[in-house]
């Protein structure tokens, strides 16, 4: 998933970005409302973490303009304003969630994951596809109950494909949601990452899970079923 952090405090902004990147997300940052709005309009973010009191343009105004411009990202308002009126105003202004400073980073991470899942159409905590399990909360994947170690980028790729299971995902979409502005993305970066992920899954005994759709992209399917949904009852909602 790709996340935008709009926060004027450099320390908080950098800490959040570091924590979220380490959690496997592609993260962009903006220090004021105008730049945040520009980012949101030009990139398809899954989640935007938006401070309320910002220079140039306050967060609520920026959020309103995002919604006017049909920006579909889930927005988590992050602010020190804790009154009921403020929360109501923030949620009524188009925010999907509201978190008051100071907060526990784990809580923020869980909320970001929940928002991301909701945006991609699933509410399940652990995603199962035959023997493969993907746990976004724990940022881990396993086959037949055995954890497989994946580099951060490959895990992000698997998670995104799992969240979009059954639907072909283009290389461009993968690139946009897995890499952030800081990443040096080569032209065959997605293909290389998919190859590495397939190799890891094959080694764990999970073959043919990621299929190539010619001229379209990739799709994650459960080889044990002819449908595209997860084999267990708590797979992705379609």
């Amino acid at each position: 998933m790709r996340i935008l952090i709009v926060e004027d405090s450099a320390v908080l902004r950098d800490s959040l970005a570091l924590g979220l990147r380490e959690a496997g997300y592609a993260v962009d940052v903006a220090a004021d409302g105008k730049r945040g709005l520009l980012h949101a309009q030009t990139t398809d973010y899954d989640v935007i973490i938006l401070d309320w009191m910002l220079p140039e343009m306050d967060g609520l105004t920026a959020l309103g303009r995002m919604r006017t411009k049909k920006v579909g990202a889930a927005v988590l308002m992050l602010t020190a304003r804790d009154s009921i009126d403020d929360r109501v105003q923030g949620l009524a202004g188009g925010a999907d969630d509201y978190l008051v400073k100071p907060f526990a980073f784990r809580e923020l991470l869980a909320r970001v994951q929940a928002l991301g899942r909701r945006r991609l159409g699933t509410r399940a905590g652990v995603l199962r596809f035959g023997p493969l399990e993907v746990d976004p909360g724990a940022q881990s994947a396993g086959v037949n109950g055995k954890r497989i170690e994946l580099p951060r980028r490959e895990y992000a790729l698997l998670e995104y494909l799992a969240l979009r299971a059954g639907k072909p995902v283009s290389r461009a979409e993968l690139e946009e949601h897995i890499y952030d502005d800081r990443s040096q993305v080569l032209s065959n970066a997605i293909d290389s990452a998919v190859y590495a992920l397939r190799s890891a899954l094959d080694a764990a005994g999970c073959k043919g899970l990621i299929q190539t759709r010619r001229k379209v992209g990739y799709v994650l399917r459960d080889p044990g079923s002819d449908g595209h949904s997860a084999s267990s009852g708590n797979g992705p909602d379609q």
Binding site: S9, V11, M53, T79, A80, R81, D82, K101, F103
Partner: peptide, 25 residues
């Protein structure tokens, strides 16, 4: 009050997030 809450909570949030992320690994 809102500004004071923001100004006081922001550095606390900075510290907490900074330390939590730093100690996560």
């Amino acid at each position: 009050s809102a500004a004071a809450a923001h100004e006081l909570r922001t550095p606390v949030a900075e510290l907490r997030t900074l330390l939590e992320v730093a100690s996560s690994r």
